[in-house]
């Protein structure tokens, strides 16, 4: 169904490596590479939400930041409506930035404490339309504040005078003021309490419908991802395990890692919860400085065979919009 829609973003084989210098090294020693994102490819279509899940340190945030060039990528392509962002000039990038916005995890830390929220929300306007008059800007800011559920008369207040949920609404208003096509949400609700989480998620979904936004939604709360996403991508140690529609993922997970993740989602019913079978994964996350050969998950995988250590499984289409990177997928 999503194939008929316009393809906004196509990420091809994106790699982000960080240089790590061993302690007490000499200036000329070669740094070790930390493979934060190691060859990730995915597409994003207009109007859909792509959820990205995975445990801490698997490269979710780094991937999102590399897409909008806040972290330099080692290799790969990020095609945004036909132009490659990674090789684009400053001017092209600046133009693309007005269509790509971001919402952050910590609502208060993402707002400059010395600026009024009016100034904060209007900053993208000031940057991309420097000629716009102050009164016109204020009008737009107030309009946007109403849209995200803030009172427009609070335009001159400072971030520390707002609650966490309100701060996140301010962050959303700032991201939306340029009417972007895509928003990256980097764990936008994990710092909020549950009732506020629901408000923010529903606000995002309403705004998405109203403005035709595409979202990349990073989270580690699987039930929230299921609620908001059209498709979900599962990451493990900088590699994609599985991409599929959210119904498929939750009803028929095929990658062993995804199966373990899904089985660990708590169910708010003690009876079912008691009898539920949880697939436990042994061991710890390997170091991304020295990832396992072949399939990165093989060291903890219950189904690992000799072949897994030799060859790296590629993402393969299993039909039904379902892509899995495993030789022994169900």
């Amino acid at each position: 169904m999503s194939t008929q829609k316009e393809k906004l973003l196509a990420v091809e084989d994106l790699k982000v490596y960080f240089d790590i210098y061993p302690p007490n090294s000499m200036p000329w020693t070669k740094p070790q590479k930390l493979k934060a994102v190691d060859g990730v490819s995915f597409d994003l279509y207009a109007g859909e939400t792509l959820g990205i899940v995975g445990e801490s340190g698997c490269g979710k945030s780094t991937l999102a930041r590399a897409v909008i060039k806040m972290v330099p990528a080692e290799a790969g392509k990020v095609m945004w409506m036909g132009t490659d962002l990674l090789s684009s000039t400053k001017k092209q990038m600046q133009k693309a930035r007005s269509d790509l916005q971001m919402i952050f995890q910590d609502p208060l830390a993402s707002l400059n404490p010395r600026m009024t929220i009016g100034d904060i929300i209007s900053e993208p306007l000031r940057t991309h339309y420097p000629k716009m008059s102050a009164s016109e800007r204020k009008e737009k800011v107030k309009e946007m504040m109403i849209k995200v559920g803030l009172l427009p008369n609070q335009i001159n207040r400072y971030p520390h005078e707002f609650s966490g949920g309100q701060c996140q609404r301010i962050g959303i208003a700032r991201a939306l003021i340029l009417k972007p096509k895509m928003i990256i949400c980097d764990e936008p609700v994990s710092a909020l309490d549950v009732s506020i989480q629901a408000q923010i998620i529903n606000l995002l979904m309403e705004l998405q419908e109203e403005m035709g936004l595409s979202l990349i939604f990073i989270a580690h709360d699987l039930s929230i991802v299921q609620h908001i996403s059209t498709r979900v991508m599962v990451l493990y140690l900088g590699n994609v395990c599985e991409i599929t529609t959210s119904e498929q993922l939750y009803s028929h997970p095929r990658h062993p890692y995804t199966q373990a993740l899904i089985s660990a989602v708590p169910i708010p019913d003690p009876e079912i919860e008691k009898n539920k079978e949880v697939i436990l994964i042994e061991g710890d996350l390997p170091s991304p400085m020295n990832p396992p050969s072949g399939c990165v998950f093989r060291t903890r995988c219950p189904k690992a065979q000799a072949k897994c250590a030799e060859l790296k499984p590629q993402l393969e289409d299993a039909g039904n919009n379902h892509q899995v990177a495993c030789f022994y997928a169900d």
Binding site: I68, M70, D106, A109, S110, N112, M115, R174
Partner: peptide, 26 residues
């Protein structure tokens, strides 16, 4: 490394403006 600096970078604010508008006042 605070998130509001990242937000400014994501919005496309130039480095000099980030220093003058976000870093110096803090």
């Amino acid at each position: 490394n605070k998130e509001f600096i990242e937000a400014a970078i994501a919005a496309g604010v130039s480095n000099f403006t980030i220093i003058m508008r976000h870093i110096v006042p803090n």
